[in-house]
């Protein structure tokens, strides 16, 4: 078969998947970009007012808004804390799981799966109950009844970050655990025979072998934590006192979608997509430069 013919056959095999991807991914993104170029409110959707093409007007409005930049910075910092926290907790527990007895590991996994499978709204609400100012278990134990965790900007962010880490570390833990278990025993044995210390083995053998997996869970976590909505919305009652706990997704919902400014909302969506793509690309490039084959 010629090279061209091979390409055609490959394309034919890929076509169904491409079609599904196109329908599920390309079309919504196309609509998102399109809507972001219009003044598209409820009146326009229901046909009560004519469409008005704004070009980059929505983007101009957004980028000129001081609050947007504040919220963006907050979102990046919040996501960073959550990502680092999730990875650290997940990695620590994964390593722990490889060192403990079976029944401890089973308990650990069951507990993690429980946290993982709790729906975000339910999880957030339960955390709120636990940290309730007057009747919460935590305040009862600490003896600080009446202390409101959700009032102060930083305690509120901290509480939500803890909740986000709680519900996302199991994914990291399970994936890393599987990765560690998949490292061939001979490799570790060879390192031991060469006289490598435990630290040296971890740093020079285990970690490089785990890199592809760490890469995947990091990118996943970045995307998840950057897009966090439910936890902030539920736990800080829609963005905290005076909106000081807003993150980008909640901001988009409040400023644009709840206010029926779909054009502006779509613009925020596009900006978020571009940002996430940029972060991911940057991360991938940095890794490639450091010699990783992707």
């Amino acid at each position: 078969m010629t090279a061209k013919g091979q390409g055609r056959t490959a394309f034919a095999y890929l076509a169904p998947a491409l079609l599904v991807l196109g329908g599920l991914l390309a079309y919504p993104i196309y609509q998102l970009v399109l809507i972001s170029l219009y003044d598209y409110g409820q009146e326009q959707v229901s046909g009560g007012a004519p469409l008005h093409f704004l070009g980059l007007g929505n983007y101009q409005k957004l980028l000129g808004d001081q609050q947007f930049w504040g919220v963006l910075g907050q979102t990046v910092a919040f996501a960073a804390v959550c990502v680092v926290g999730t990875l650290l907790v997940g990695a620590f527990l994964a390593i722990l799981a490889t060192r403990v007895r079976t029944w401890v590991r089973m308990t650990l996994f069951l507990a993690a799966l429980g946290a993982w499978s709790t729906p975000a709204v339910a999880g957030s609400t339960i955390w709120l109950f636990l940290f309730d100012a007057n009747f919460g278990f935590v305040n009862e134990v600490l003896g600080i009844q009446g202390f409101s965790w959700t009032f102060d900007k930083w305690t509120a962010f901290g509480l939500v970050a803890a909740q986000v880490i709680w519900c996302s570390f199991p994914f990291v833990m399970v994936t890393l655990y599987a990765g560690i278990k998949a490292i061939p025993g001979e490799v570790l044995e060879a390192a031991a025979l060469d006289g490598a210390s435990a630290f040296r083995t971890a740093w020079s053998v285990t970690l490089p072998l785990l890199r592809p997996i760490i890469l995947v869970v990091t990118i996943q976590s970045i995307i998840w934590d950057f897009k966090v909505f439910t936890q902030i919305y539920v736990m800080t009652n829609g963005g905290g006192i005076a909106g000081r706990n807003l993150v980008l997704n909640v901001y988009a919902y409040q400023q644009a979608f709840a206010a029926s400014e779909y054009g502006l909302g779509a613009a925020i969506g596009v900006v978020m997509t571009v940002l996430l793509l940029a972060i991911t690309m940057f991360y991938l490039r940095a890794l490639r430069r450091s010699g990783e084959v992707l």
Binding site: V33, L34, Y40, S46, G47
Partner: peptide, 15 residues
């Protein structure tokens, strides 16, 4: 072309 030619969906709306 698609971006320029098409516009977001509008329903006929109540009339």
């Amino acid at each position: 072309g698609a971006v320029v030619a098409c516009a977001p969906v509008q329903s006929g709306g109540p009339s």
